[in-house]
Amino acid sequence: MLELFTYPFMQRALVAGIIIALLLGWLGVYVISRNMSFVGDGVAHASLSAVALAILVGFTPLPTAIVFSILLAIAIHALKQKSSISFDAVIGILFTTGMALGIVLLQFHEGYVPDLMSYLFGNILTINTSDLWWMAGVGTLIIIFLATARRPLAFLTIDPEGSSLAGIPTKRIDLLLTIMISLSVVLSIKMIGIVLVSALLILPSASAKLLARSFHQFLVSSIILAVIMVLVGTILSYVLNMPTSAIIVLSGTCIFFVSLFLAHLRSLEKKESTTSSS
């Protein structure tokens, strides 16, 4: 089995997997705590139009999707601030419009579209060295932002009103967070696909939230669980000869149910100790 680590495509997939697990595991903490789960899903689906546009005009899809994701995040943020309609509805409109636009644009492309299925469901065979450089470069910028803005992000998560009073530029931080989520989602599309990418934002952080006893533990365990989810899923998919993205998501689902079980056991233990002490 160890020969799998000698294959260049598998080495690229594992490096890409660790980068996106770091990003989505960290961002997932803010995404599920601030009820932004739909943002990741929306950005991923809407970015199909960027991928389609890139295929149509012959650009490289990943850089095109990166630029598009920044514009999309700015549009989501602006609509959220100015519009009287709900945030979910805003994402829903962009989500479906982007996807529909992508399908229409692809109709103008003559001949076979080899990349499309790999963008929809992910394909580790399509991750090339150039993609890895993009992931490493943009990923480093996102991690620098997350590390330096850790305190305001936590403040904004627990108490938006209080953080505004404390002088934190809440709207700016909110915009930057939305951009970072969009960028991370787009970076992950080749690995896990448009349809399933939001699972990496939600499953590790939802599992970590069940087990953590502090915000610091929540953050660290979300990142660790995301890395485990991606590595186990990628290796298992090779061993079982199954689609990688689906096995990654199912590994995450298993981690979530194990966490749920452990959290339940802990609450039972707590109840027992309370009963015996009283």
Partner: peptide, 18 residues
């Protein structure tokens, strides 16, 4: 105070933010 009671944040961590 709209506290999400499921969010694992300790009193120290909360006060540390301020």
């Amino acid at each position: 105070f709209a506290l999400d009671r499921t969010l694992p944040m300790t009193v120290f961590e909360f006060l540390h933010l301020s």
